[in-house]
């Protein structure tokens, strides 16, 4: 419903100006600057910049380290958002049934929203510590059973478990609201048509949940990236052997530790284009499968 009630030429612009200024300074300008530095080289000892064309891209794309990092980033985005959405979906489906536990679950499942990714990283790296944590006893029985410090698979499992823990709330809230918006009559009609609960899940609930699933997928893919920094900085620092050195973390190290402004900006551009492409892909291909009829 559009309201469009007041007529005024300048007032709406004055009203939106503060937000537009903030967005310009800290959203659009940084994007533009990243593009600027991706094509320029900062001159040593400050002062001035030099246009270098595609030189920065050639340098970045020529390094194996970048490709490892980009691959790890894609893998992480897909698996982290996949695991967290699946978990939240299962929990939402369970909480949608009016059980005695549901109200408690609905409250508790959004608590992780109050915990920063870095805090939960500190906590899980302790809980999953191979020598001091809950899995330490198993390590004593079978040495090497669990060692996220050296075993890449274990490292990723640790990251995904932690990410799922942290990412449940938002996804859970959206999906549960979507499930509860499906009219009870449709379940009844389905039951009358001979469709059991399991079949109704596939034939009725999931198709009608596609708008929420779409929103959640789009947001979770971006969120898994931004949340990854807190986890990696506190849990793996990019290790073992650079296997979890995701682009977000690599850009941070290149820019703030190695002071390679142009290299970091170039990778920023690549990462932003990657995320924009994924979002675009989702809009063009996934959104077609969304049922907006209600």
């Amino acid at each position: 419903m559009k309201q469009e009630i007041f007529r005024s030429r300048w007032l709406p612009w004055w009203l939106s100006a503060p937000q537009l200024i903030v967005l310009f300074l800290f959203f659009y300008l940084p994007i533009a600057l990243a593009f600027f530095w991706a094509f320029h080289l900062e001159q040593p000892f400050g002062g001035g910049s030099e246009f270098v064309g595609l030189e920065n891209f050639r340098r970045v794309l020529g390094s194996g380290e970048f490709w490892t990092s980009a691959g790890a980033t894609l893998l992480y985005m897909i698996l982290a958002s996949g695991t967290s959405i699946t978990t939240a979906l299962i929990l939402a489906l369970a909480a949608d049934r009016a059980l005695k536990l549901s109200p408690l679950a609905r409250n508790v499942f959004i608590w992780p929203k109050a915990v920063a990714s870095a805090s939960i990283g500190v906590i899980f790296v302790f809980i999953l510590n191979p020598f001091l944590g809950i899995l330490a006893p198993l390590n004593e029985i079978w040495p090497g059973f669990w060692n996220p410090r050296t075993n890449v698979t274990h490292t990723y499992i640790m990251l995904f478990v932690t990410n799922v823990w942290n990412a449940i709330p938002f996804t859970f809230i959206i999906l549960l609201a979507g499930l509860q918006a499906i009219p009870q009559e449709l379940h009844k009609a389905g039951a009358m048509d001979g469709s059991g609960p399991w079949r109704r899940l596939w034939d009725i609930q999931l198709p009608l949940l596609t708008p929420q699933l779409f929103v959640v997928i789009v947001l979770e893919v971006a969120d898994s990236l931004s949340g990854s920094f807190g986890l990696i900085d506190t849990m793996t620092q990019g290790g073992p052997g650079g296997s979890t050195n995701l682009l977000v973390y690599k850009i941070y190290s290149d820019g703030f530790k190695a002071y390679d402004l142009s290299g970091a900006a170039t990778q920023t551009v690549i990462l932003m284009v990657l995320v924009a492409c994924i979002t675009g892909f989702q809009y063009f291909f996934l959104e077609r499968k969304v049922n907006y009829d209600r």
Partner: peptide, 27 residues
């Protein structure tokens, strides 16, 4: 409000949801 530019303003605002600050931390 009626008038031009409202859709554009809204699009500018919504676009900022897609790229988190973490991605452009350097600049």
């Amino acid at each position: 409000f009626t008038g031009r530019g409202r859709g554009f303003v809204y699009a500018l605002v919504v676009a900022s949801i897609m790229l988190p600050l973490e991605l452009m931390i350097i600049t």
